[in-house]
């Protein structure tokens, strides 16, 4: 079923918007590795995977082609419209990151939503984003450093994007917030223990 029900659409854009808002509060993350990035910019790639989370979560939860791209674009649009420093660069990043995640899930025909696939999606997103940043932001960086940056990007895409995204989806499934969604049908995700109909 690839048609987007209203709830699929709204969940997708809600994930994008929630991350857009949360990202604004993430200054703390960058200050954590601040000294490191000031001295050695490629280290920023270590956090790259965080930015792919809207796409990976939307794909894992809504499980339809296009969800990852739409969620990432919403998160990017929000950041851009609120005055993010990369302006249209943000949208291009959103397009590439969302597109990369789509690519990962498309390779398995949107049939498998397991940890390895999520990591693969994160890796694709990282690779595309790296190509763009190399071209648009760091064209003058020498190749050895650019390749170090690529390695950081890929690792972060797999771990902070894929692993964290999958973990977050599990945590959300446990809350019951995914019950009406395709991911809510996945016993591997929700476990088999169920509460009987709520009575208080």
């Amino acid at each position: 079923m690839t048609r987007f029900r209203t709830i699929d659409l709204l969940v997708t854009v809600a994930i994008g918007a929630a991350f857009g808002v949360a990202f604004l509060g993430y200054g703390a993350l960058y200050s954590l590795i601040g000294p490191l990035t000031a001295a050695f910019k490629p280290a920023e790639g270590l956090l790259a995977g965080i930015w792919f989370l809207p796409a990976i979560l939307a794909a894992l939860i809504v499980r339809k082609p296009g969800a990852a791209l739409l969620a990432e674009l919403i998160a990017a649009a929000l950041e851009m419209l609120l005055g993010g420093q990369w302006a249209w660069g943000t949208m291009i990043s959103g397009l590439l990151q969302g597109g990369g995640v789509e690519l990962g899930f498309a390779l398995l025909a949107y049939r498998r939503f397991t940890l390895p696939v999520a990591m693969l999606a994160g890796v694709f997103a990282a690779a595309l984003e790296w190509v763009y940043e190399r071209f648009a932001y760091y064209p003058e960086m020498s190749w050895p450093f650019a390749l170090v940056m690529l390695a950081f990007f890929l690792a972060s895409g797999a771990v902070l994007g894929g692993v964290l995204g999958r973990a977050a989806t599990r945590a959300l499934a446990a809350t019951g917030a995914l019950d009406a969604l395709p991911a809510g049908r996945d016993r591997a995700l929700t476990g088999t223990e169920r509460r009987p109909a709520a009575v208080s």
Partner: peptide
């Protein structure tokens, strides 16, 4: 705390999305 808050915000957003839909 950041991760926990994000998850809480997502739960809120998902529940809201269901009602909005």
């Amino acid at each position: 705390a950041v991760a926990g808050s994000t998850l809480a915000l997502l739960v809120d957003a998902l529940r809201g999305a269901e009602q909005q839909a």
